[in-house]
């Protein structure tokens, strides 16, 4: 029974680790590789099946037939490149130094507990990013200013709604609507209104699932890859719907 208890502890930890990675936007092959590496450092074999919403994982003892299987749900975490980098790094550290499970668990807890960048700083950076995007597309300075404000408004709405746990699709449609509506203020001035409205919603493009989906499919994880792509397409359609309302209202001045 002792052996099984140990396998169970390992399985619980790896399940937590792998679902955290999957949920925070890491492509599938990396999740599988990292988890197997941790298993190897603890002297067990790990086999994983990944789906979009859940994950099946078996931990086997390499020397006898003991095995422990766990099916876990993948939480919907905000995308975090920091988890991607630090948790991958943790798996290598475990591999190179043969860390015992409790040390591993403590380090994992510390990485998860690290404070995130302040939402206000992110808001400002996103505003600046979209404004410079507008300039790249050839917008004049009036348009750049209005896009900056429109992005602040749109991203603020997104942050507030996401904090309250509202459905993603509603969040994306509403923030696209708010941002493009604010950007439509450019129609009042003599400026590059078309470019301003076009760029005001670009901060909503789900770039991470789009690229991860392509990587997953090319690497043979077709199921998770296509579910990621499908999710990204749905979000893009939501952005298009939010954007098309102001377009319908102001189409005569835009033609």
């Amino acid at each position: 029974m002792n052996v099984n208890e140990e396998l169970k502890e390992i399985a619980k930890f790896v399940a937590d680790y792998a679902t955290c990675l999957m949920g925070s936007g890491v492509h599938t092959s990396r999740v599988v590789r990292n988890s197997k590496r941790i298993g190897e450092s603890l002297g067990v074999l790990i086999r994983i099946t990944t789906l979009h919403k859940s994950l099946i994982l078996t931990v086997c003892n390499a020397h006898n037939d003991d095995a422990y299987t766990e099916v876990v749900d993948i939480p919907e975490l905000p995308i975090s490149f920091a988890y991607n980098a630090e948790l991958s790094s943790l798996s290598w550290k475990a591999y190179d130094r043969h860390l015992p499970l409790d040390v591993l668990r403590e380090e994992y807890r510390q990485i998860r507990a690290k404070p995130k960048m302040s939402p206000h700083v992110v808001l400002l950076l996103v505003g600046l990013a979209n404004a410079s995007f507008c300039r790249l597309f050839g917008g004049d300075w009036n348009a750049v200013g209005i896009v900056f404000i429109a992005t602040l408004a749109g991203f603020f709405v997104r942050q507030q709604m996401q904090r309250r746990g509202i459905n993603h699709f509603i969040v994306f449609t509403t923030s696209a609507f708010v941002a493009s509506m604010c950007a439509s203020a450019t129609l009042l001035f003599h400026t590059t209104a078309e470019i301003a409205i076009a760029t005001s919603v670009l901060f909503l493009i789900p770039g991470v699932p789009l690229i991860n989906g392509v990587i997953d499919i090319v690497e043979g994880y077709t199921l998770t890859g296509s579910s990621r792509l499908m999710h990204a397409f749905l979000l893009i359609i939501c952005v298009a719907v939010g954007l098309s309302l102001p377009l319908l209202l102001f189409k005569n001045s835009l033609l």
Partner: peptide
């Protein structure tokens, strides 16, 4: 330069590690 600002800003949405 403008693309660098845009990249950093859009990157910030996904919380990269500071050293990146």
């Amino acid at each position: 330069l403008l693309a660098a600002i845009a990249g950093v800003g859009f990157g910030a949405i996904s919380f990269p590690p500071k050293r990146a």
